[in-house]
Design a protein around this nucleic acid. Structure first.
Lengths: 151, 151
DNA sequence: ATTACTGCAAAGGCTTTGCATTGTA
DNA sequence: TACAATGCAAAGCCTTTGCAGTAAT
């Protein structure tokens, strides 16, 4: 059985890139995560397993992976300045970030797909990628704030 | 008749902030623009009218305006790292940025509103702000690329 | 043996901040 | 007059890059 990691390494190979220990390690780290992580977080996780890996390599590798379509490279609220990455396994995920507790609530992708489709229909444009970031309150905090009469 | 600028200055005053020439100038610059501008662009426009204004003041002022709700502070593709600002006059505007010619195609706000509403209905969250950035091709480039058989 | 990849440290781009000065209220 | 706001320059934060050494194919 071929894993995502195997496939990714095959992609590297197919494009003439070398499969280095650092790249394998980063694939392994990414494969173990469901959520988007920033470069620093990815670096920390990798560094814990290989003390010699550098942040520069993490950045270079993530950018390479993004070019090859192996990872989604995005921005999310509220740290909108920082890039986050996730292994491209399934459809891109979008979130609402809770202002109160920081939770990231996933947004059903069909909502965004519908929006993109409608946009294409109405305007005659082509959509190649979309980024939707919502800020607000998660269900738990919404309920709590309502209880406190603050919403 | 009270202008947007008058109202903004009244807001400043009401919150105990001083109405300085720099703030008035920036309001004037922003009021003359329909689109989102980045800090540097705003600085250039202001600087043309007042050689002594500094970029630091532009940043501080824009952040203050954002806190007071006087401007929308956003990120747009493909310069997603750079903040852009626009006087908060009417609903927030979202765009699809054309990869080929750089045009920004406005996205009908009802699409995003619908999405936010559906999100609230399905998940029980509260949405306080939304950011949608689409990347792709504008209608003209979409048509051209189709003609060239590249789409 | 090549040529790409890595680590390190320095630089880059955008934004913020410390401090002395200026100017509004 | 008092305190906020400004300009300047330096620092901060995230990311990229030059270079010499290292390693994958």
């Amino acid at each position: 059985m071929t894993t995502i990691i195997d496939e990714a390494e095959a992609t590297l190979h197919r494009h003439g890139f070398k499969v280095t220990p650092q790249r394998s390690l980063l694939l392994q780290v990414l494969a173990a995560q469901a959520n988007y992580l920033d470069a620093e977080e990815i670096y920390q996780l990798a560094h814990a397993q290989d003390r010699s890996i550098s942040l520069a390599t993490v950045y270079r590798t993530l950018n390479l992976f993004a070019e090859l379509g192996l990872v989604d490279q995005r921005y999310v609220e509220p740290e909108h300045r920082r890039e986050v990455f996730r292994l491209a396994d399934g459809p891109e995920q979008h979130y609402l970030t809770c202002l109160r507790c920081g939770t990231r609530v996933p947004i059903a992708t069909d909502l965004l797909d519908n929006m993109a489709r409608e946009l294409v229909r109405r305007k005659g444009v082509t959509v190649t990628s979309a980024c939707a970031c919502f800020t607000g309150y998660c269900p738990a905090c919404t309920a709590e704030l309502r209880r406190e009469g603050k919403l």
